[in-house]
Design a protein around this nucleic acid. Structure first.
Length: 315
RNA sequence: GGGUAGAUGCCCGAGUGGCUAAAGGGGGCAGACUGUAAAUCUGCUGGCUUACGCCUACGCUGGUUCGAAUCCAGCUCUGCCCA
């Protein structure tokens, strides 16, 4: 958004909410993850991250202060701190120095926020710190404590879903959550599959974000209560049933056969219907999780959901 | 009727003596995707076989050659041009 449509348009349009006509909460990322995912195209320095603008090739420098400033001008409700997301695998030495940099950047972010943002008020922007430390328990604890010391509105666990095995991902969460304040939101960045979401909730996570439901939908995969299906597969060619028994009415009326046809025909409607479905599936999943927590039977809900979800794929 | 170009795997199409089970597309069948430069990427796609390998394949029939999708002859069909 800072490169295209650019600051001018965002300023003229009065921020993201008006630009996108979206009145509900918006969270913006700092650019830290792009630094990881586009690793070949950038260089990390103490000052910030140098990279080339992919639109015109010009050299850019993204710093903690600039990231905060950009997110402030976008007017998101939650802005993420500018961090370094170390790769996996990552030795402890690199993880420690990367974490030290993330912490120094967090302080610079905090300084910028203190100098530029109102401390309270309706609609003020909230800022979340990001716990790093790779797979190392002591680093995770240290990171969490340092961020809490700086005092942010919420805390995220980052550096997960970067290619590590699932058990490492769970451990990274377990190693960070106990040191984060109970009364503030805890957010697992970039996660996850439906069973992973429930496992994270069980470990005390409140918030998620993930490209999986929409990206996977565009690639023809749909979540169902019985596990994911590939709508492009031949077995759905003559299937009159809906994509999932829990599907939203907007999607439930279409047969799997028709959805498959849309994908094979290259019709963009297929991508949109599955994206809509997968997002609804996630929203419905966490709504049920909230209800189960209120009712005091979350563990039963989680276990029965996962049992059914994985039944067809497990031996 | 005459001339001319052509006939290749499910489709289109490259190949013009051995390195060809045959490039490349398309289509088909699967797989991957986790803080979105992702309507993307990867694999397989003649038959039998775990594999080695064997068999069948470049319009049809015959021929030349150690060896033919590739060269020769005849035939069949198709496009275009002339009558």
């Amino acid at each position: 958004l800072w490169l295209r449509p650019g600051p001018e348009v965002m300023r003229e349009m009065g921020g993201l909410h008006r630009f996108a006509t979206w009145e509900r909460p918006i969270l913006t990322d700092s650019g830290g993850f792009q630094v990881w995912s586009l690793a070949k195209l950038r260089k990390i320095t103490e000052e910030g991250v140098r990279f080339n603008n992919h639109l015109d090739g010009s050299k850019m420098l993204l710093t903690p202060e600039l990231s905060m400033q950009i997110q402030a001008s976008l007017g998101s409700d939650i802005a993420m701190l500018f961090d370094e997301c170390p790769p996996y695998p990552c030795d402890e030495k690199y993880a420690a120095s990367s974490l030290a940099l993330t912490t120094r950047w967090a302080k610079r972010c905090k300084d910028w926020i203190t100098a530029n943002e109102p401390k309270s008020g309706e609609g003020r922007q909230h800022h979340f710190g990001i716990v790093q430390g790779s797979i190392y328990a002591d680093l995770r604890e240290q990171s969490a404590r340092e961020l809490v010391e700086l005092d942010f509105d919420g805390y995220a666990v980052g550096g997960v879903s970067v290619g590590e095995p699932e058990h490492e991902m769970f451990r990274a969460i377990e190693n960070a959550v106990p040191f984060l304040p109970f009364e503030k939101p805890r957010y697992a960045m970039g996660l996850g599959t439906p069973p992973q979401i429930l496992e994270m909730i069980a470990r005390g996570v409140d918030m998620f974000d993930c490209v999986m439901p929409t990206r996977i939908a565009r690639h023809g995969m749909a979540f169902t209560l019985d596990g994911p299906i590939n709508i492009k597969n031949l077995i759905h060619a003559k299937d009159p049933s809906p994509v999932c028994e829990s599907a939203h009415p907007h999607v439930a009326g279409f047969s799997r056969a028709y959805l498959r046809h849309l994908f094979r025909a290259g019709e963009i409607l297929g991508l949109r219907l599955l994206s809509f479905h997968n997002l609804h599936f996630y929203l419905s999943l966490v709504a049920r999780a909230r209800d189960a927590i209120s009712a005091g039977n979350f563990t039963e809900f989680k276990d029965s959901f996962i049992k059914r979800y994985t039944r067809s794929t497990e031996p």
